[in-house]
Design a protein around this nucleic acid. Structure first.
Lengths: 220, 220
DNA sequence: CAAGAAGTTGAATGAACGATCAACTATGCC
DNA sequence: GGCATAGTTGATCGTTCATTCAACTTCTTG
């Protein structure tokens, strides 16, 4: 969920009405919420950058909170094409797809000098407590993300232990990604993110070894 | 860094000047930044809840950003007695201390209906990009946290593989904690946190098994 | 006890905030 | 072409925001 900005721009240009007002508002609001956070972003800034008048914005979104909801629904829609599809194109194997995805997040972080991080993660910590409907949509975004990963994990068959809870493991990967990004932003460099990914890789290697050993036993 | 509120209050009552203005401001600001976030917390609210006039606050902290710095320094000081000491009292073994610490975070989350989470983590995502000195102090808080964990890990000796990078592993534990809290807040329940801890436990079991096997080989 | 330093009071400030609305224009449908 | 609906304009509203400051009180120190 890192480099939506760029890729989503290309999506926009492909479609027929590229500069439709509502989409332009969502596009800019999504970017500014990501860059500055929800509370730190003023409506006036969104209006200026989207080149829209306040009346138009309030025609589509009756309040700033409604705009937040709109942005989170927007994020749900663009998640797969923007975040998942590139990783699926980068690797065929389920496990390698996961690390390709993490590498893409790394690249996104690198492009913005370790700033911004994950737009959904940022909003999760900033607004989840105070805006229940937003919390639900953030949760939905996380669930969708993990569901894709779980699909990748299922595709590797017996290379992971049959006892492993793949749904749980998919959410653990999200945990590691978000935690790694948080520390990288605090550090101002990617070392903590890389270290977290390295530990995750070590875990996966041990899981695969465990599965291999179990298969040997099964053969006998 | 979850239940500082309660424990730090008891600290305050022990010391000689318990209701010193500056400490009262820091106490309230820390709590409100934790509960509502930095931008969502108005100076007026801090003044009201700390029962202090604006002039007094600006006597100690020339700006809201300076107050943020003060709060982060405050957090650095109270981290060990409030967060680490209880876990050290709860378990002797290094590895069990880690999971006791995570259990304490869980309890803190439970007390507040899965809200608030980690005060440092929240600020990391909200202000790290825009306030470089705050970013450095957040990083310092994370480093101190992980350094304590690393000490615990070193104390377990050969029960972890000699090849394991214990500094890296300590930061990975912070990653898992923060990522698990983020998902729990989004979900509105503790399941994702518990799952993350379960996966971390599985990883530790595999690491210990690996170390045991290596020891066997070494004996021969 | 004198005198300066440290801390406190609280009304006032201008800027930025989210939100409103009556008037206006474009669009789609019969 | 008529008429409602959808979308747009931009000045304006009241509120809240972080911050200021001159006057005042309390503490410190010689």
């Amino acid at each position: 969920m890192n480099d939506q900005l760029c890729l989503e721009r290309s999506i926009k240009e492909d479609r027929i009405p590229p500069s439709d007002t509502k989409t332009r508002i969502l596009d800019v609001a999504f970017r500014l919420f990501h860059e500055q956070g929800y509370h730190a972003t003023g409506i006036a800034t969104i209006l200026r950058e989207a080149d829209v008048n306040s009346g138009s914005l309030y025609h589509f979104f009756p309040s700033k909170e409604a705009l937040l909801i709109g942005v989170l629904e927007y994020a749900t829609q663009i998640m797969h094409p923007v975040v998942m599809a590139p990783a699926e194109a980068a690797a065929e194997d389920g496990i390698e797809r996961i690390f390709a995805l993490l590498a893409n997040y790394r690249t996104g972080m690198e492009m913005f000098q370790c700033k911004m991080g994950c737009p959904i993660g940022n909003l999760a910590l900033e607004v989840a407590d105070d805006h229940p409907p937003a919390r639900a949509l953030i949760d939905q975004n996380f669930r969708n993300w993990a569901a894709v990963i779980e699909g990748w994990l299922r595709s590797v068959g017996d290379r992971l232990p049959p006892s492993a809870d793949l749904g749980q493991l998919s959410r653990f990967i999200l945990t590691v990604m978000e935690g790694g990004i948080m520390q990288a932003r605090a550090a101002g460099n990617l070392v903590p993110f890389d270290e977290s990914v390295a530990q995750l890789r070590a875990y996966f290697n041990l899981l695969q070894e465990q599965a291999r050993a179990a298969r040997e036993v099964g053969k006998q």
